[in-house]
Amino acid sequence: MTQTASLSRSAPSTKKAASVEFRNVTKRYGDVTAVDDVSFTIEPGKLVTLLGPSGCGKTTTLRMIAGLEMASAGQILIGGRDVTNLSAADRDVSMVFQSYALFPHMSVLENVAYGPSVQGASKKDAQAMAMEKLALIGLSGLERRSPSELSGGQQQRVAVARALVLEPQVLLFDEPLSNLDAKLRRRVREDIRELQRSLNLTVAYVTHDQEEALAVSDHIIVMSNARIAQTGSPRELYEEPADLFVADFIGDANILTGILGEPDGAHARVQIGGLSVRLPHRGVKPGPVKLAVRPDAVVLNETASTAGSVAGTVTKASYLGTQMEYEVETPVGNLFVVQYGSRDPIPTGTRVAISLTPERGVAIIPGA
Score class of each variant (00 low, 15 high):
residue 140 S to V: 05
residue 167 E to D: 12
residue 271 Q to G: 13
residue 95 M to A: 06
residue 151 S to P: 12
residue 117 S to K: 15
residue 87 S to D: 14
residue 254 N to M: 13
residue 6 S to D: 09
residue 216 V to K: 04
residue 320 L to D: 04
residue 33 T to P: 11
residue 57 G to K: 01
residue 168 P to D: 01
residue 184 L to F: 10
residue 108 V to R: 03
residue 179 N to K: 07
residue 273 G to P: 06
residue 38 V to E: 01
residue 213 A to I: 03
residue 37 D to E: 05
residue 194 E to F: 02
residue 17 A to S: 15
residue 347 P to W: 13
residue 186 R to F: 10
residue 237 L to S: 11
residue 66 A to C: 11
residue 177 L to A: 13
residue 340 Y to S: 08
residue 257 T to C: 11
residue 277 V to I: 05
residue 113 A to G: 03
residue 219 H to M: 11
residue 32 V to M: 08
residue 163 A to Q: 11
residue 359 E to Y: 09
residue 88 A to G: 00
residue 152 G to V: 13
residue 282 R to L: 01
residue 316 K to Q: 14
residue 211 E to T: 09
residue 34 A to L: 04
residue 337 V to E: 02
residue 191 D to C: 12
residue 33 T to M: 08
residue 199 L to Y: 05
residue 148 S to N: 08
residue 256 L to R: 03
residue 317 A to V: 13
residue 123 K to Q: 12
residue 263 P to V: 07
residue 34 A to N: 00
residue 113 A to K: 06
residue 88 A to E: 01
residue 263 P to R: 08
residue 265 G to V: 04
residue 368 A to K: 07
residue 20 V to H: 00
residue 159 A to T: 10
residue 9 R to N: 13
residue 55 G to P: 07
residue 47 L to P: 04
residue 274 G to I: 15
residue 93 V to N: 03
residue 317 A to D: 04
residue 26 T to A: 00
residue 96 V to K: 02
residue 239 E to C: 02
residue 62 L to T: 06
residue 92 D to H: 10
residue 2 T to W: 06
residue 323 Q to Y: 13
residue 191 D to H: 11
residue 162 R to H: 09
residue 304 A to G: 08
residue 175 E to K: 07
residue 58 K to P: 00
residue 221 I to C: 14
residue 252 D to T: 14
residue 70 M to V: 14
residue 96 V to N: 05
residue 347 P to K: 08
residue 342 S to C: 03
residue 183 K to G: 01
residue 35 V to R: 02
residue 241 P to E: 03
residue 338 V to H: 15
residue 86 L to Q: 03
residue 65 I to F: 06
residue 356 L to S: 14
residue 299 V to C: 12
residue 70 M to E: 11
residue 123 K to F: 01
residue 75 Q to L: 06
residue 261 G to A: 11
residue 351 R to A: 15
residue 185 R to H: 11
residue 329 E to T: 15
residue 310 V to E: 08
residue 17 A to I: 12
residue 140 S to D: 14
residue 335 L to V: 10
residue 186 R to N: 07
residue 112 V to K: 05
residue 42 I to A: 07
residue 197 R to A: 15
residue 117 S to T: 15
residue 233 S to W: 11
residue 98 Q to F: 09
residue 42 I to R: 02
residue 16 K to T: 15
residue 350 T to M: 05
residue 244 L to D: 02
residue 353 A to Y: 13
residue 240 E to A: 12
residue 8 S to K: 08
residue 9 R to Q: 13
residue 208 H to R: 01
residue 175 E to Y: 10
residue 81 R to F: 02
residue 366 P to D: 05
residue 294 R to D: 15
residue 245 F to C: 01
residue 53 P to G: 12
residue 247 A to S: 12
residue 226 A to Y: 01
residue 178 S to L: 07
